[in-house]
Design a protein around this nucleic acid. Sequence first.
DNA 1: CTGAAAGCGCTTACAG
DNA 2: CTGAAAGCGCTTACAG
Lengths: 348, 348
Amino acid sequence: MVTIKDVARLANVSTATVSYALNNPSKISKETRERVLKVVKETNYEVNRIAKSLKIKETNTIGIITEDITVFSTPEIIDGIDAYAEENDYHIILENVRLYKKIGNNYQDTSKVAGIISELVGILLSRQVEGIIYVGAHCRDVSGIIGRLPIPIVYVYCYTNEESSFSVNYDDELAAYELTNYLLNMGHKELGMITGLTDSMQSQMRLEGCKRAFSEHKVAFNSKYIRAGNWEREGGYQAAKELLSLSQAPTAIFAFNDLMAGGVIDAANEMGLNIPGDISLTGFDNRECSYSYTPQLTTMSLPLSEMGRRSAELLLGLIKKEEEIKDKNQNLKLKCDLVERESTLSLA
Amino acid sequence: MVTIKDVARLANVSTATVSYALNNPSKISKETRERVLKVVKETNYEVNRIAKSLKIKETNTIGIITEDITVFSTPEIIDGIDAYAEENDYHIILENVRLYKKIGNNYQDTSKVAGIISELVGILLSRQVEGIIYVGAHCRDVSGIIGRLPIPIVYVYCYTNEESSFSVNYDDELAAYELTNYLLNMGHKELGMITGLTDSMQSQMRLEGCKRAFSEHKVAFNSKYIRAGNWEREGGYQAAKELLSLSQAPTAIFAFNDLMAGGVIDAANEMGLNIPGDISLTGFDNRECSYSYTPQLTTMSLPLSEMGRRSAELLLGLIKKEEEIKDKNQNLKLKCDLVERESTLSLA
DNA sequence: CTGAAAGCGCTTACAG
DNA sequence: CTGAAAGCGCTTACAG
């Protein structure tokens, strides 16, 4: 590898001058600058970023910790982070936890997870990243997993209850509100709901959004139409069987994710019901499966890429100590978008 | 941040001794070592990897360039790379090209792509990565995109025709051979095939695998059952309409990817044909959509994670100059696995 | 405008 | 067994 010394020697100048030619052109004459640049080009010299970082104490590097990069939401979040980072000449060291592969369903065991994560954080710190983005595999409370840090951290697709922590998520309540509005406007007052696990914040927030829509429409919210699913296709199937067997069956079902909506389709097929002819159906997430179903699913699309971008924006702001940011946007909630496809129909 | 100097001062030793305590314990006495380690623990000292890298001229870092991290195959490949890297205490700088977003369908325009990529390579080189893994968005020839490099590079899910280049892919011919065998063994001699774009190496290799199976089964291969698709659902639909309208329609269809298989399902539904009752169907790729279809699709699962792992293995081998590797495994082709689901049935 | 020199935080022959 | 010193490849006051 050619170093700054080589360039200096070939251009008959000092290393300082080479450095100026590259970073601070105004400090030297045009002639020397051009002479140096010529040698730089000829030798293909490229600065050793390691040495430079050591000297200037800036690495222009952020760390990303992903709980699981193979989960559907993660790649797009990374894509968004990466896009913003690139625009600002920041680069990324990626640490993928493979949380589920490592500890299975014990991911709720905070101390165990914390042990694994703190090692990764240590590595990132040792490599002098200027900030960290922690990307959850799904939206949940990760308080206590990462302790106090000498550098900023922002959480995406997860959050903590620690004071002055920064997170970027989407707005569950609003999304469910809009989806429910959409269905109510279509005339579906008997609206079945298949929630996720009931102890999840997401299920609860979405339920609140549903209720708000009902109340604004001045339609009584009937809790007999609520069933708890488990986020899996099978759970959606079971719940749908129950809902569709009710004496006064709902005319539409809002499954709290696309997977469970798949189960609703299974149930409807089995019972000889047509979607959307006999019953309308919406999912949530806009995953690949949602447009592979027959019929293609009306669903909410998550602003994943935007979440990534905004988290990077937040983080770089914090790194650069932009005080306004520090107070203002502690916990962003981005808006989801309704994707209307074939599975929903207006009542008569 | 606490430095080695701080530790040295607090432990009343020189920085050399601290370094030995951490990296070369046998060089110092047990007592001093313990004293140093105690201070290390108390101060939470962690080595500055940037400084260390500069000194020892090893960064333990590899670069990954992904053409598009949001493409279905990429995350699992990264997962595999990351798993192996972690085991060997290597870490990853990720550069995501966002190829399609940046240049749309001009990705065949080598010089344009080369320009974008060479900048990323420069960044990686500047950051002193010890090797690079280039992850294609789909399997294709990327010759000429990256020029001669002072460090090793391995290509995954793509390849080059350059001499002594290293790549890891899956075996298209073998996979198609096995899938065809599977269908022939079920009695499907009238076997429809929907290829991808005909100029793609994958289409061609898979077709060869099909023919080999036919010839081993001593069944004449009938080219009237071949249709060229475009890798998209719509193309699969069109091709299936044609195939299923033939006077002697095939009893099974092998769609060269899962997306096109979705189009076959559409066509069958429209024509009132039951899968697998009236016609068997297989896809290729084992994407999320393949188990979301009704019926769930029999398909070939790609060894993506393993491809990532093997590419990392290859790269680290190259970095460590293991000569055996250098000659032996230039272009790996890994085996795919048949995933049998609901869309295939034995004839009578 | 240019160069000599110090120093970023480490590691490692070398001397004692 | 331990420390003083050099040096990795840069940048940046400082002096001239």
